[in-house]
Design a protein around this nucleic acid. Structure first.
Length: 509
RNA sequence: GCCGCGUUGGUCAAGGGGUUAAGACGCCUCCCUUUCACGGAGGAGUCACGGGUUCGAUUCCCGUACGUGGUACCA
């Protein structure tokens, strides 16, 4: 058997933000390609000029780079099979449509939108709510199958607006093997005569995907399950165009569903349920409406990718944390789930938590510095790294370093007084005054040494650790939270600690 | 309506004719920690239903139900 180089493509329409499910399709494409040392191409399917949204293509590219899933060929970088934007390939498609007409597998249709609408209205019944332009209906319509040849020629030469439709066989069983679903069978009687070439000369998805996959030598075609019902059209097109031997292997990926019930996950669900659905923030240029993204929410791309990979795939072991490299190595189509998965934001957060917890402090600091800057604060990166190391295990998101460690950057503005005031007394005040001056004379300020000194002083003053440690923590942080107290002191430094003791003693009186 | 695809705890899921039906998230309890977490130990909770096939079905077959997708000159 000849061995063709694996080539896959991600082919989005530039109509808006990039959805979770889209990113997962990219991911599976990418993993499969890289595992087989193949090519991953980005192709922009902008054949519907009415839905084109400026900026969407750039946005998609940026999403891919953020995720670390860079294409080998794309509109921006070019490649041997360009152009990679279907609008720029427009002149290519007509000849294939005409070829199909010539061979009898397609025909011209002159029906106006009004005529189509009229047909649907009159044929509509409770049993058949959406009548199709199919092998029986086409007999009653105005097309090159029903009109006399002379009239068709006449209409054509007069440039009458028309489309080219596929001539679906009346009753044929079509079977193909899907990489995730196995054998899938359709009867052609159930699918209508899809438009292949629109009146504006642009191809529809059906024609374009087949022509471009062929021309770009795509070997494996991954797409969402919503495409499964139109697979017979594509299958027939590959056959009718005479390219059957080169048809890619199909893989229809399961859908990502709403957490709470019915249907595909949509951006509206994110707004409604309070989590991102797009990879990155997306602002619709027309409405100005902002849809939140995972990146801006504080997700690390590795965590985002890992989470997505586990939605519909697993390696059969108990391992859940995978690097991109590992995924490339271990990914397998056989283990892709058939059923759609409800999206669980809690689990997504858990993945991010894991990655933040195990991320090195310097990287975290670099990510957190901008958050600090937004608050009008700045700090030494090394200091921020220390802080990150102290609080990262309790952060789900990078910006939460602030929530768990703000007191490293500013003195607490208020205290959890209920936790200390009722038990506050002169002995404790004396203890802290003594502790403050002891601090000044200490030769070592490591957490361990500080703790020893603190304990010794407490014993000397006849106080229990529990009685003074909590008040001390609250002087430093304002509340009952945060890393171990002596780590805080060691990080804050003696001078700042003494300031806060003085302030606290004063406040607790 | 019709057609396709699917169905293991609340969610993600492993498994697949005989098992105490993994594991993870979430939830609960306890331990660690005189804070909060992390970590550790436990706990509650499941094979959609009905028929077959079989000595035996969660697993195979057929139905039903439910879910989901499609049914555009949108992708």
């Amino acid at each position: 058997m000849e061995h063709k180089k694996v080539r896959v493509r991600f082919a989005p329409s530039p109509t808006g933000g990039l959805h979770l499910g889209g990113v997962r399709t990219v991911l599976f494409n990418y993993l499969f390609a890289k595992q087989h040392k193949g090519d991953f191409v980005l192709r922009i399917e902008d054949t519907d000029q009415t839905r084109y949204v400026p900026g969407a293509e750039e946005y998609i590219s940026e999403c891919l780079s953020w995720c670390g899933l860079k294409p080998d060929e794309s509109p921006a970088m070019g490649g041997p099979y360009g152009p990679y934007r279907q609008s720029e390939r427009k002149p290519l498609y007509r000849q294939y449509a005409e070829q199909l007409v010539a061979s009898g597998h397609a025909y011209y249709a002159f029906d106006t939108p009004e005529e189509l609408e009229n047909m649907r209205q009159t044929l509509k019944t409770p049993e058949n709510p959406s009548p199709q332009y199919n092998h029986v209906v086409r007999e009653k319509m105005r097309n090159s199958l029903t009109l006399p040849d002379a009239e068709v020629q006449e209409l054509l030469t007069r440039n009458t607006p028309h489309v080219i439709r596929i001539n679906m066989p009346a009753n044929e069983e079509l079977t193909f093997t899907d990489m995730v679903r196995g054998e899938v069978t359709f009867n052609t009687s159930q699918v209508d005569d899809k438009v292949l070439l629109k009146a504006d000369g642009m191809p529809t998805y059906h024609l374009a995907v087949v022509v471009d996959d062929y021309l770009m030598k795509i070997t494996h075609a991954f797409r969402g399950e919503e495409w499964l019902p139109s697979a017979p059209v594509h299958l027939l097109l590959w056959k009718y165009l005479g390219w059957e031997a080169d048809m890619p292997q199909w893989a229809h990926l399961p859908l990502i569903l709403k957490p709470d019930g019915n249907g595909k996950l949509s951006k509206r669900d994110g707004d409604r349920l309070g989590f991102p659905v797009y990879a990155m923030n997306w602002t619709d240029p027309k409405s100005g409406e902002l849809t939140k993204g995972f990146r801006e929410r504080g997700f690390l791309p590795e965590a985002f990718i890992n989470m997505l990979a586990m939605l519909g795939w697993n390696d059969g072991t108990e391992q859940e944390i995978f690097s991109l490299e590992e995924l490339i190595q271990k990914f397998s189509m056989e283990r892709v789930h058939k059923a759609g998965a409800k999206f669980d934001y809690e689990k997504a957060k858990w993945f991010n938590h894991q990655y933040i917890h195990h991320k090195d402090n310097e990287t975290l600091a670099a990510l957190f510095l901008p958050v600090l800057a937004e608050k009008g604060l700045s700090a030494d990166p090394a200091y921020v790294a220390t802080v990150a190391g102290l609080v990262k295990e309790r952060c789900y998101f990078v910006n939460e370093i602030w929530d768990h460690g703000f007191f490293f950057f500013q003195s607490p503005e208020s205290y959890d007084e209920a936790a200390v005031k009722p038990k506050w007394n002169a002995d404790k005040e004396a203890f802290f005054t003594a502790w403050s001056s002891l601090l000044e004379s200490l030769t070592s300020a490591t957490a361990a040494d500080l703790e020893v000194a603190f304990k010794a002083l407490a014993t000397e003053k006849n106080l229990k650790m529990g009685d003074v440690q909590l008040p001390f923590r609250i002087m430093l942080t304002g509340g009952k939270f945060g890393p171990p107290v002596f780590d805080i002191v060691a990080t804050l430094g003696v001078a700042e600690t003494r300031n806060r003791i003085a302030k606290g003693v004063d406040a607790f009186k």
